[in-house]
Nucleic acid binder design. Structure first.
Length: 743
RNA sequence: GGACGUUUAGCUCAGUUGGUUAGAGCGUUCGAUUCACAUUCGAAAGGUCGCAGGUUCGAAUCCUGCAACGUCCACCA
């Protein structure tokens, strides 16, 4: 299903190199990695406290444990009546495994007990409790004394190792009690906890029972309560120095002693790897700082076998059975062990293949921020360790796709959108656009069908633009000279090409797509193609534009663009066609003036409630330069404004309605009188423009502003002021006119 | 408890190094239908830029504090 999804989404993968994490070649690489790490002493077998999932009956790495907020009862009590120190816990059942009580070394309350040993009877079981002093204890929390349970707490195990304490397991792999005395053995942890509280209360040992907020560890996959238990497992030691097999990361030479943590840190700290957006670098470093040894053995069937064999206490690395008397380790490796090798195990490693030389390191890893620890960090660890170089230069992290209410997509909520359902409905290109445009790197994205439908409309637009241009290419010839509109669109095309290219290089996919869309829909379709219906002879230009936008759109919309390309008979498939040339050019300003003029004319007619279909007579009072451009482009301006005529005049006839704009005054021949709302509106506009002029004048009157602001800003304001004053006088004239009509 | 992110139009989000009257899409309102496209076209309305201070000639943008929401990390037993 996943492969189908990836293919349907139009991912441009090299499918000839598709690999499977559990195939034979990958197994070879995994075994080799295990052998190397074992040899270097980084992989070790040990009896330690691990995360145990009693539901799936397997160990978990720290990253697969998820804290869940609940409340718990914090009990304050003493083991028995003769024990001099009170302790507090939310997990009373583990107290059967206590071997010590730890206090802070400076805590005067308990100084006299430190070093002494007690033999209290806790709920029927005799304990051997040593009082130890340890910096890890917070004297201000609870009673300032902690019961130490080395078998069921990683931090207690640390304390125990500092004080040479033994470890007594009291919870088994089914989360049932053991070594807890006959009345407790076999109970679940929860049952035991309740029973202990009752018993302590009955014996007058319970001093306090309060409800406190608590985070309990749960399994990421099954959701079950995770127990910390001592077990014999395989670990990758992250803080243990080893000798490098080769020069590494441009910093260390062969034979230097380093730790895996140092390797992981250096790869990013040296900027050989960039993580984008870069706030995730901080998260990455923080994770490394708190990283503990990685438990890599799992008690599940699905995975790479651990390639070691046992004969009694003897351990031997071997892929094949070394003999009948040897038994293989029944466990498998954490799936991220093999996934962490992906960037090079897929290229034939440990063989020094041509592929490895050619494609490693790769340029970009693109993935979701939720697996930065599981996968990204592990790939860096594995690659730097085994090859001495980085796996990739840039890590681009995208956000999570959420539903329209911002909730995580989940099967149980039924709010998941499957691309395979969306594609037949809206088309692949529309689905792709909805994931690209309007998203920010590393930021979650709310996806809805409405949004996809919006992009479906755009794909349809592009399709029709393509069809229209193809028709034009066939039917219209090529003119000898370029019009203002031609020069403008070609300049805009190069501008947009340069800008989009730059944005793609900087991973600004959303902004690139938005700019392309605006150009395609607005500049090209709404303006230039409309003009092309009037000004004929644009076959060559249209062809050039089509070819360029198809190339620019192709990474976003591979299907529609490629189909149009084929219809246009442009020679190369877009996926291998060269990217359009990036040139520096600026769009001529004249066209923008004409475009604004047409918009103003349209707005004026709409305000005057003139039917869009009605062709009307305009007059225009403008400066000489603009008048010349209008004359040169009169045909398409008439068409786009739906004007019958546009007369260039020195003054708008007295009985016409007029409207002041930045480009002059537009007059409208209309027998029907303007309605009252126009009067009100004009008054309002006059007030707005007067206020605006005032604010500009204030700025210019401000000595500090004039002396400190850069000249271009001041000039800009002066220019605006001139324009605004022209507009104000026109509005004033118009109000006079309207008043005159009213009389 | 620590860190990070978000807060801008009814909704989803842009807003580059502080500098014109803060933008887009969707939605809304008004209007348009032979002419590539109603999956369309034209026009309009709509914003105390989360709050409070500060820096500056000038703040959505920089600084400080606060609030709400979210995420990650963290074994106060």
């Amino acid at each position: 299903t996943i492969v189908t999804q990836i293919r349907k989404m139009g991912s441009s993968c090299d499918w000839s190199r598709e690999k499977y994490t559990l195939d034979e070649e990958r197994n070879l690489a995994v075994n080799e990695m295990f052998r190397m790490m074992l040899e270097d002493g980084i992989i070790e077998r040990g009896y330690r406290v691990v995360n145990w999932d009693p539901v799936f009956k397997t160990t978990l790495s720290d990253d697969e444990v998820v804290a869940q907020e609940t409340t718990a009862q914090l009990l304050t009590f003493t083991y028995d009546a003769d024990f001099p120190i009170s302790i507090a816990t939310t997990r009373a059942e583990t107290k059967f495994g206590d071997v010590a009580v730890a206090v802070h070394p400076d805590d005067k309350r308990y100084k006299k007990y430190v070093g002494k040993t007690f033999e209290p009877v806790f709920c029927g079981k005799k304990l051997l409790i040593k009082i130890v002093a340890d910096e890890a204890v917070d004297p201000n929390f609870g009673t300032g004394a902690v019961g130490v349970t080395p078998a069921h707490s990683m931090i207690d195990a640390d304390i125990a190792s500092r004080h040479n304490l033994e470890s007594i397991q009291v919870i088994d792999q089914n989360a049932h009690m053991m070594n807890a005395g006959v009345s407790y053995n076999g109970l679940t942890t929860i049952e035991a906890r309740k029973k202990i509280e009752t018993e302590l209360k009955k014996n007058g040992l319970l001093q306090k029972s309060e409800t406190v907020p608590q985070n309990i560890p749960t399994a990421e996959r099954g959701g079950g309560l995770v127990e910390q238990l001592p077990m014999r497992q395989w670990f990758i030691r992250v803080n243990k120095p080893f000798r490098l097999r080769q020069a590494t990361l441009k910093k260390w030479k062969k034979g230097d002693r380093v730790t895996l943590k140092e390797l992981m840190k250096e790869a990013v700290a040296s900027t050989q790897i960039r993580i984008l957006p870069n706030q995730f670098e901080k998260i990455y470093f923080h994770w490394i700082d708190h990283l503990r040894d990685w438990c890599i053995s799992r008690q599940i069937w699905f995975g790479h076998r651990i390639p070691v064999w046992y004969r009694g206490e003897e351990i031997k690395f071997s892929i094949e059975s070394p003999g009948a008397e040897w038994e293989q380790d029944p466990d498998t490796l954490d799936t991220w062990f093999s996934s962490g090798m992906w960037t090079f195990s897929t290229l034939g490693w440990p063989e020094q293949t041509q592929e490895l030389k050619t494609y490693h390191p790769t340029a970009v890893l693109e993935t979701g921020y939720d697996i930065i620890f599981f996968w990204v960090a592990r790939m860096i660890l594995m690659t730097v360790y085994a090859l001495g170089e980085i796996p990739f230069h840039d890590v681009y992290l995208h956000g999570m796709v959420r539903d329209e209410q911002g909730r995580k997509m989940s099967k149980s909520l039924g709010n998941a959108l499957d691309p395979l359902d969306l594609i037949p409905k809206y088309g692949t290109d529309a689905v792709r656009l909805s994931l690209l445009i309007g998203t920010t790197p590393g930021q979650d994205l709310k996806l809805s069908e409405e949004k996809i439908a919006g992009f479906r409309n755009f794909t349809n637009k592009l399709w029709n633009i393509g069809r229209f241009i193809l028709m034009q290419i066939e039917s219209s010839g090529t003119a000898d000279t370029k019009t203002i509109a031609d020069k403008w669109i070609l300049a805009r095309l190069t501008e947009v090409t340069a800008s989009v290219t730059k944005k793609l290089e900087q991973y600004e996919f959303s902004s690139a797509g938005e700019e392309l869309r605006d150009f395609t829909w607005s500049d090209l379709a709404d303006w230039y193609l409309e003009i092309a219906k009037v000004e004929k002879g644009k076959a060559d230009i249209l062809k050039q534009i089509l070819e360029t936008i198809l190339k620019l759109w192709h990474p976003f919309m591979p299907f529609i663009t490629e189909q149009l390309r084929a219809m246009a008979e442009f020679s190369e498939p877009l996926i291998i066609a060269p990217w359009p040339l990036v040139k520096k050019e600026h769009a001529p300003k004249e066209f923008e003036k004409l475009r604004t003029l047409v918009s103003d004319m349209r707005r004026f007619r709409a305000e005057q409630k003139i039917e869009p279909a009605k062709r009307i007579r305009f007059s225009l009072c403008a400066d000489q330069l603009l008048a010349r451009f209008v004359t040169e482009n009169i045909e398409w301006i008439k068409r786009l404004a739906n004007a019958e005529t546009i007369d260039l005049v020195n003054q708008i006839p007295g009985n016409w309605n007029s409207c002041a704009t930045a480009n002059g005054i537009i007059g409208l021949d209309l027998k029907q009188s303007a309605d009252k709302s126009e009067h009100v509106k004009t008054e309002r506009e006059l007030k707005e423009i007067t206020d605006y002029i005032q604010s500009l004048e204030q700025k210019l009157a401000n000595q500090e502003f004039v002396s400190k602001a850069p000249a271009r800003i001041i000039d800009g304001i002066k220019e605006k002021l001139t324009d605004a004053e022209v507009k104000r006088s026109a509005l004033a004239k118009r109000i006079k006119l309207l008043n005159g009509q009213a009389e």
